[in-house]
């Protein structure tokens, strides 16, 4: 029963990884690609690690995997934000933008 749950979660995580990678190719500019990358690192990695969390339940590795998930969730947005802010500052402009409230 638990094996099936773990397998399903790993499959979904893999599907998200493929879709996120496709998004990296398909989206037109830096900022939209970042969204696909965020989806990769949160949706795919967290889900994959969560399935391992269930698979190893309850052993020495379980808490460590939990800590890895939490650290990933804390550090990933911070790094993404730092990259995006710097990119905007050095003048990488979005290719398509319906509205920009930052300029005014």
């Amino acid at each position: 029963m638990i094996d099936i749950v773990v397998q399903v979660m790993l499959y979904i995580s893999g599907i998200f990884a493929v879709i996120g990678s496709l998004g990296l190719i398909r989206f037109p500019d830096f900022y939209t690609r970042t969204h696909a990358a965020t989806m990769l690192s949160v949706g795919s990695v967290s889900l994959g690690l969560l399935s391992l969390f269930i698979a190893t339940f309850w052993s020495v590795y379980t808490l460590k995997i939990f800590v890895i998930i939490v650290f990933n969730l804390f550090t990933n947005p911070t790094a993404t934000h730092a990259i995006a802010e710097r990119a905007y500052k050095i003048g990488i402009t979005p290719k398509k933008l319906v509205k920009d409230e930052m300029k005014t």
């Binding site: 900022y31 939209t32 970042t34 969204h35 696909a36 965020t38 989806m39 949160v42 949706g43 969730l73 804390f74 990933n76 947005p77 911070t78 993404t80 934000h81 995006a84 802010e85 905007y88 979005p94 409230e101 930052m102």
Partner: peptide, 25 residues
């Protein structure tokens, strides 16, 4: 707030201060 927004795919905090500026897909 800023990290939660960035962590959600589709929204990305570009500048954080008294107001946040968010790139929204």
């Amino acid at each position: 707030l800023g990290n939660s927004i960035t962590l959600t795919p589709g929204t990305l905090t570009i500048k954080a201060g008294d107001n946040l500026f968010v790139h929204w897909i």
